[in-house]
Amino acid sequence: MSVQTAMDEAQVDQAQADRASTDQAGTGRHDPAYNFAYLDEQTKRMIRRALLKALAIPGYQVPFASREMPMPYGWGTGGVQVTAACLEPDDVLKVIDQGADDTTNAVSIRKFFQRTAGVAVTEATGEASLIQTRHRIPETPLTEGQILVYQVPIPEPLRFLEPRETETRKMHALEEYGLMHVKLYEDIAHNGAISTAYAYPVKVEGRYVMDPSPIPKFDNPRLESPAIQLFGAGREQRIYALPPYCRVESLDFEDHPFEASKADHDCDLCGCGDSYLDEVIVDDEGGRMFVCSDTDFCATRRALGHAGRLSGEALA
């Protein structure tokens, strides 16, 4: 056995051990100091009514009475409220932040619901019944019955073009989206291509223009999904939704069609050529590596024996 394989195996074992330790069965008991899933029942009913209307009008932003949550705005208070209103005791919850299960935001939200709802948690996309996400759609295709909850900072796609809520509301009512096309056209005029790389606007069922939250435009084609997709913006007090198999078109021009782009590399850890990559600076001499932003996807591939350019090296 070569040193290389031994190290790989050790890594796989380590990866599996790490992942097993984070998957936890639900206790079925939540901290009795809190109502199940933290929010009071009256608040949950209000959010639930908004969610049903959001599903009935795909892409339309339903106003809701967003509550103060025990975390600052910008940390996913909208997503947390939507998750709290949807969770049931036998759910298996996964939380990701930019694709990663192990970042501060993801870990704290996961712990929050373990404590207040007693639900099971997992890092495996396929095992989760409800996934709360910040700015990514998992690489593993979602299935019917799964729910994907997005944390949304600015729900209004027209906000940076027109700051007045009264005006943007009228523009949605009148289906007046010319301004958005002008913006994309100016991108082409200045840069030769549409330079918007994330939060790329989409049109839902040929009616509402919607901000898919700051997911990379690489993820836009995945917005047409068998899963239920719910979007919560806490500070801006809006909820919107995409039912399964809903038609979602990224805005573009006939001569400049939409293109889902990514860094032109393979993952340095798992070798995957078609996943979305993070660029990581690894030393102070300009050294860099590219790794899958979806940690579960990458770890699963490595556990299956896939290897990338740097997978044999000790990564400090």
Partner: peptide, 19 residues
């Protein structure tokens, strides 16, 4: 037991409205 029972009921309503 309102919290878990209404949570299960809402999930049924959510699935029904979504699909």
């Amino acid at each position: 037991d309102p919290a878990p029972q209404s949570a299960r009921a809402f999930r049924a309503a959510l699935q029904a409205m979504a699909m």
